[in-house]
């Protein structure tokens, strides 16, 4: 009961903090817009596969974003693609952090030989270039969202593992964890009750960052034709645009809107993350308060300690 109330106030506090921070507000608004498009949009537009008119018509009142090289409605494709691309993006973002946490936290918590081995493992994965590896794996497997997700997780988890290992190592040395070990609690309990809760904001930031990665890499692989080219996603839209020589026929509307959407979602998520950072970073908060204090008193922030007499 009391747990539920604290959680509610926690969420309310976050909502207020996001509202106060400009970057977080921008990010949250952009993300909300795209989530709405992804969830409800497909019911509002026509079937993206239907051939609705002459191919490569520029934007008009009838087809707001024109038609593709096959004669489909670009707007329908964009909206329907939003749902699939975002779903894969968020699912992969979450999965990548879960895998990274499993390996990183295990390495950081147990230390010693376990740490040495797991660290070597993720460092090797970190240094092997992801895109070529993803291409090879995706080429062998039957194309589809599952393949795509799997490939993105395999090539994307290592960075999270590395960061979470370092964080766990730092937390482990904290006194309260040592006390919990002495008290004979199980490792699983210590990790889930004592260590993971201290890293909540880091984990959220990682999910957001990994989602940006997942959307970008997914679009890249599909652009190469490694997705299911008969499905409608942002990446396959770009694949078909390239295949239909959109550039050489001057059909900018077949690729420009999709790229813009990828960028807006990525930008929104990144803004959300740097907004979180501003909210949770005490150093940035102090500096901001200092700057405001000076500007309110008509002083410029200076490198040498500023002098603001407040008795007058």
């Amino acid at each position: 009961m009391s747990g539920a109330t604290t959680q509610a106030t926690g969420i309310a506090a976050w909502r207020d903090a996001i509202r106060r921070d400009r970057k977080a507000t921008i990010g949250a608004v952009m993300l909300t817009v795209f989530l709405f498009i992804g969830i409800f949009g497909p019911w509002l537009v026509g079937d993206p596969d239907t051939l609705v008119g002459i191919p490569l018509q520029p934007p008009s009142g009838e087809h707001w974003l024109g038609t593709t090289g096959q004669g489909q409605d670009v707007l329908s494709q964009l909206v329907v693609g939003t749902r699939v691309s975002l779903a894969i993006g968020f699912a992969v973002g979450l999965a990548v952090v879960l895998l990274g946490a499993l390996i990183g936290v295990t390495a950081g918590y147990f230390g010693g030989r376990v740490d040495g081995l797991l660290s070597l493992f993720f460092n090797v994965f970190l240094v092997i270039p992801g895109m070529p590896l993803a291409i090879v794996i995706a080429a062998y497997l039957p194309s589809g969202p599952l393949t795509l997700g799997l490939v993105l997780v395999v090539t994307g988890w290592a960075w999270n593992a590395r960061v979470l290992r370092a964080q766990t190592l730092a937390q482990r040395q904290r006194v309260f964890v040592a006390a919990a070990v002495v008290a004979g609690e199980s490792s699983f309990r210590i990790v889930t009750r004592e260590i993971l809760p201290t890293m909540t904001s880091l984990l959220v930031a990682q999910v957001v960052g990994s989602t940006v990665y997942a959307i970008g890499a997914q679009v890249g692989l599909e652009f190469l034709g490694l997705g299911d080219v008969s499905a409608v996603t942002w990446g396959t839209n770009l694949y078909w645009a390239q295949n239909d020589s959109a550039l050489l026929t001057g059909a900018w509307w077949t690729f420009a809107p999709t790229g813009l959407c990828v960028a807006l979602v990525g930008f929104g998520l990144t803004m959300l993350n740097s907004g979180f950072d501003e909210i949770t970073n005490p150093r940035l908060q102090l500096e901001r308060a200092w700057r405001k204090h000076l500007l309110q008193r008509g002083k410029e922030p200076t490198r040498s300690t500023p002098v603001v007499m407040d008795n007058d």
């Binding site: 050489l248 690729f255 999709t258 803004m271």
Partner: peptide, 23 residues
């Protein structure tokens, strides 16, 4: 720059090619 970085590289390439090369 973060906004520009959010575009897929190849998409920026397509736009640049379209405007600066093609048009």
């Amino acid at each position: 720059l973060v906004f520009l970085g959010a575009f897929p590289y190849f998409w920026l390439a397509m736009v640049a090619l379209y405007i600066l090369g093609f048009s």
